[in-house]
Design a protein around this nucleic acid. Structure first.
Length: 589
RNA sequence: GCGCCCGUAGCUCAGCUGGAUAGAGCACCGGUUUUCUAAACCGGUGGUCGGGUGUUCGAGUCACCCCGGGCGCGCCA
């Protein structure tokens, strides 16, 4: 679909060349105006060029506008303020863009100029433990980023790096052998594993014999004891089955779930290679990587890749994981969606991986001319309770994700029954699910990810404000129009009539619609899905204003057809946008 | 002590990476329905953008210094 900003930028670039050939502005940026009174799009390129050339900015801007050839796009181009160039689009061009967008299977999202193969690493729950609020942000952010990266044409591989090989298995296996309740395991395996772990860990604290027993079970597991391996696998499989239920409920999908255990056999080789290449060295009995030449890391503790007892750590696993993704998957970029507390760890891993990739004779890169991967830590803050402390249950435990989702759905169901008793009972569960789970996801995704946020049921389920229910309600209102007699067929033949858009709320809505592609792309600049959420909220707000001001079905032709067209395109954009955030829409609520 | 993140309306948050008169929702006050879901929409009240210095045509945004809060810093993940 036509990239409006690029066309304006190119026109502006030519005009700049003509007006002052020695200007230094390589690619003039054109963006939407903040205030609609100024116009539709604007650029500060003339001000920047004038500053560099020490010329009066307004004068230069006037010259640029004089040389500008944009009659096919703009009704008016004018200079304002200190030298801004403001573009006023031709209404029929807006209509033409809307028609293009409606015909575009990609909903007007332009493809990325340079498609990449990107691994998104997110969620990563621990075996034998229930998923809890701590997994929410990683799961939602990672899934949304993967969906958005795919939508613009990147090749995305999602990978769930499960915590399935920690020291906790010593205690778990000991507990399994001594205290397992088969019935409980059958009914709710993860809860039973959690019980075993708590039981043994309490005993271990009190008595040395339990500590010793757990240590022996762990050593046996590592040595390949068949029975311990079988127990380990049973625990891992049953846990994974539980995770899958939650992911299905959330609509989250992984291409791979290569946990820590997958990399375990590679770890001795990785450490050996790092030592051989001079990247790692022994220190106080452990094998460490020091960062003496890295100004940001030289003063902090080294990264340990092998403990003095010979065990490996998650730093080791993470390095092995980088290698696997580069060699086997040809990954060019990796996004690690984990919380902010792991920043130092990832800085170290990334720094070590860069040295590894640069070392002659390394096995990280598949070939000599292969480029090292871009590794990015997608940081996010903590979810807080009303007391501004990390959210917990009353007893101080993390809130289980399934409990949270159950509560979201039941609250949403209550809302629906109260506000719209006429909704047929059979449609209620699906609506409650979409609204409840969508609200929890949206609360997370609509906020700047690197901030902590306060979890508040009342706010996230509110029908007013920047919430999923508000967006879904806007969608539902549109769909309701199309269920009326005679609406459906009219919408398909509206394309030529879109030039009748004249009401200010129609134009405001139309101008927002054509920015959808920009909004989607802006997310990937810095992996911030809330930019798309902000866009959708603004779009829904503009739709609501239009809906109040302009009757659709009762309008005379050709307005009626044009408005139906706008409604149809708005619905499609809202649905696609919410889908990119991993949020379902429904037809009625 | 060192490092990272943060501080915007009474509360919860945006602010398009340096643009024009800083915006939403909640709360408070008032208005809108013979019309497609009023679960909505419109208007009003509310600001020393933590403080200071600097950079420049222009700073909530960038730099430096303070103040305040959160998190992290050798054998956990």
């Amino acid at each position: 679909m036509t990239d409006l900003r690029r066309l304006l930028s190119q026109a502006l670039s030519s005009a700049l060349d003509a007006a002052c050939p020695d200007h230094p502005v390589a690619a003039p940026t054109v963006g939407p105006c903040q205030d609609p009174r100024f116009g539709d799009y604007q650029s500060n390129a003339a001000i920047l060029a004038a500053a560099a050339l020490k010329r009066p900015p307004r004068e230069l801007a006037e010259a640029v506008v004089g040389a500008l050839k944009a009659e096919s796009l703009c009704a008016k181009v004018e200079v304002a303020g200190p030298g801004f160039i403001n573009f006023h689009l031709l209404p029929f061009r807006i209509a033409a863009l809307l028609s293009e967008m409606a015909d575009d299977p990609c909903c007007g999202i332009p493809p990325a100029e340079k498609p990449k193969r990107i691994v998104v690493d997110f969620s990563s729950p621990n075996t034998a433990k229930a998923m809890h609020v701590g997994h929410i942000r990683s799961t939602f952010l990672g899934d949304a980023l993967a969906r958005i990266a795919r939508a613009v044409g990147h090749e995305v591989i999602t990978d769930n790096h499960l915590g399935d090989w920690g020291t906790q298995f010593g205690m778990l296996i000991h507990g399994y052998r001594r205290f397992l309740d088969r019935e409980a395991e059958k009914k709710d395996p993860v809860t039973e594993f959690e019980r075993l772990y708590r039981l043994v860990s309490a005993q271990a604290e009190a008595e040395a014999s339990t500590r010793e027993a757990a240590r022996r079970e762990l050593a046996a597991l590592h040595a390949g004891d068949p029975e311990n391996l079988r127990i380990w696998k049973e625990i891992a499989d049953l846990s994974f089955t539980e995770f899958e239920k939650t992911y299905r409920r959330l609509g989250v999908r992984f291409d791979h779930h290569l946990g820590e255990s997958f990399y375990n056999p590679q770890l001795p080789g990785v450490v050996e290679e790092l030592c051989r290449l001079g990247i790692a060295e022994e220190s106080e009995g452990a094998v460490c990587i020091f960062f003496r030449n890295d100004p940001a890391l030289k003063d902090v503790a080294p990264m340990i890749v092998r403990k003095k007892d010979g065990a490996f750590l998650y730093a080791t696993t993470d390095l092995a994981t980088v290698r696997h993704r580069v060699r086997e998957w040809k990954a060019e970029e990796m996004l690690y969606v984990t919380d902010a507390r792991q920043q130092l760890h990832f800085k170290q891993v990334f720094s070590a991986a860069a040295r590894w990739a640069a070392a002659p004779g390394n096995t990280l890169l598949p070939s000599l001319d292969a480029r090292p991967p871009a590794l990015r830590h997608i940081v996010f803050g903590t979810i807080l309770g009303a007391d501004k402390k990390p959210i917990k249950t009353r007893t101080g435990n993390p809130i289980k994700l399934t409990d949270l989702l159950d509560e979201a759905e039941s609250r949403a169901l209550g809302m629906i029954e109260e506000r719209n008793p006429e909704l047929t009972p059979s449609a209620r569960p699906a609506a409650a699910r979409a609204i409840g789970i969508g609200a929890v996801k949206y609360a997370d995704l609509s906020q700047n990810r690197n901030l902590d946020y306060v979890f508040d049921w009342k706010k996230l389920l509110a029908l007013q404000g920047n919430t999923a229910p508000y967006l879904i309600y806007a969608y539902v209102r549109i769909r309701s129009i199309f269920r009326q007699d005679g609406a459906a067929e009219a919408a398909t033949e509206a394309l030529e009539t879109t030039s009748v858009l004249s009401h200010e709320t129609e134009l405001a809505l139309a101008k927002k619609l054509i920015q959808f592609g920009d909004a989607v792309h802006s997310v990937l600049d810095d992996c911030r899905p809330h930019l798309l959420a902000n866009y959708l909220y603004d779009l829904a707000t503009r739709f609501s204003r239009f809906y109040e001001a302009c009757p659709v079905l009762k309008a005379p032709e050709p307005e009626r057809a044009a408005r139906l067209f706008l409604c149809g395109l708005t619905a499609r954009t809202l649905r696609r946008g919410l889908d990119l955030l991993g949020i379902e829409t429904i037809e009625e609520m």
